[in-house]
Design a protein around this nucleic acid. Structure first.
Length: 292
DNA sequence: AACGTTTCCAACCGCCTCGTA
DNA sequence: ATACGAGGCGGTTGGAAACGT
């Protein structure tokens, strides 16, 4: 939160009107709300001007999207929303806007704040850091590198080949056959085998999946062994070769590619690219009702 | 009660993409 | 080709509120 700029609204040299910054006053909110309800969204700089606001268009847009929009849902996140956020983050990483698009009434900013304050902390405390955290500068990430130490595994993350819920200590433990507490908690024994997969006992055989049954019930709606999901693909449409053709990680990548190809069920589109829509089909079937 | 610390979150910043001139 | 503005996004900041001592 920021203090309203004390010099707000005053003209400065050259006759230019200084734009306001900081917190929005109730009057400003009223102006913006009334304008938006009467005129709808247009060019944001016009909105700011026509609504009589001494704000930049960007600021108006942000205020509307994050606070004034009538369809915003208020209040704490439900456990269902929380789980969906965690799940989506495991797929999408820090693509908050894409995550928000799948949570009606929630904003990217809200979800981002929620993640950074609540979920990140919780995952850290449970010794299973956030999956697919792209915050490479964070202390968590540094801890992660320090803990894992196995260049190949870190590289997989860097490449976007991050099995869901597989990171840092989970990886390390899995590598020695010791599943992380989180997996124990949910009654799963997972091992990171030499074939580059998470191996999960299913009946009498092992399934190679990149997900746990953490969220998806028993029907395989998302991530049961039947799903045949091996790795969470990078969402950018970048082929493996394009992503990092000549690095020290090539061996790891090649190995992954080989395994995935062998399995015949990795998520690469017809033109060799990852298909976000296919990926998100599974999310759309997520068995929660957020309409309330 | 007073003070220090931590948490939460609104808002800003900088970068990127896209459309247009 | 390129310059420019608008919109969008993720990362970060910083201050109020809550909590602890």
């Amino acid at each position: 939160m920021r203090k309203p700029d004390p010099s707000a609204g005053k003209s400065i040299g050259g006759g230019a009107t200084k734009l306001r910054k900081g917190l929005w006053s109730p009057e400003e909110d009223d102006k913006l709300m009334n304008y938006m309800l009467n005129n709808g969204q247009g060019c944001w700089s016009d909105v700011a001007r026509n609504a009589g606001l001494l704000r930049c268009g960007k600021s108006c847009r942000l205020r509307w999207i994050n606070y004034l929009r009538p369809d915003l849902k208020r209040g704490a996140f439900s456990p269902q929303e929380e789980e969906l956020i965690i799940h989506l983050h495991s797929i999408l990483g820090n693509r908050w806007s894409q995550i928000a698009a799948r949570l009606p009434g929630r904003t990217d900013n809200e979800i981002k704040n929620f993640w950074n304050s609540t979920i990140k902390k919780r995952l850290k405390n449970s010794t299973v850091p956030s999956p697919n955290t792209s915050d490479s500068s964070s202390s968590e990430a540094k801890d992660h590198q320090a803990i894992v130490g196995t260049r190949g595994f870190v590289s997989m993350q860097e490449q976007g080949f991050v099995p869901m819920f597989m990171q840092s200590t989970a990886l390390n433990r899995a590598g020695t056959g010791d599943a992380s507490p989180m997996f124990h908690q949910h009654g799963m024994n997972m091992m990171f085998g030499s074939n580059g997969y998470f191996n999960i006992p299913v009946g009498s055989s092992m399934a190679h999946v990149g997900v746990t049954d953490r969220f998806y019930g028993e029907n395989g709606v998302f991530g049961g062994a039947e799903m045949g999901i091996d790795y969470v693909p990078p969402l950018e449409s970048i082929s493996i070769e394009e992503q990092n053709p000549k690095t020290e990680n090539t061996y790891v990548n090649n190995k992954i590619t080989e395994n995935m190809t062998g399995a015949g069920n990795f998520w690469v589109g017809e033109d060799g690219e990852w298909d976000l829509e296919d990926l998100m089909k599974d999310v759309s079937s997520f068995p929660f009702d957020f309409s309330s």
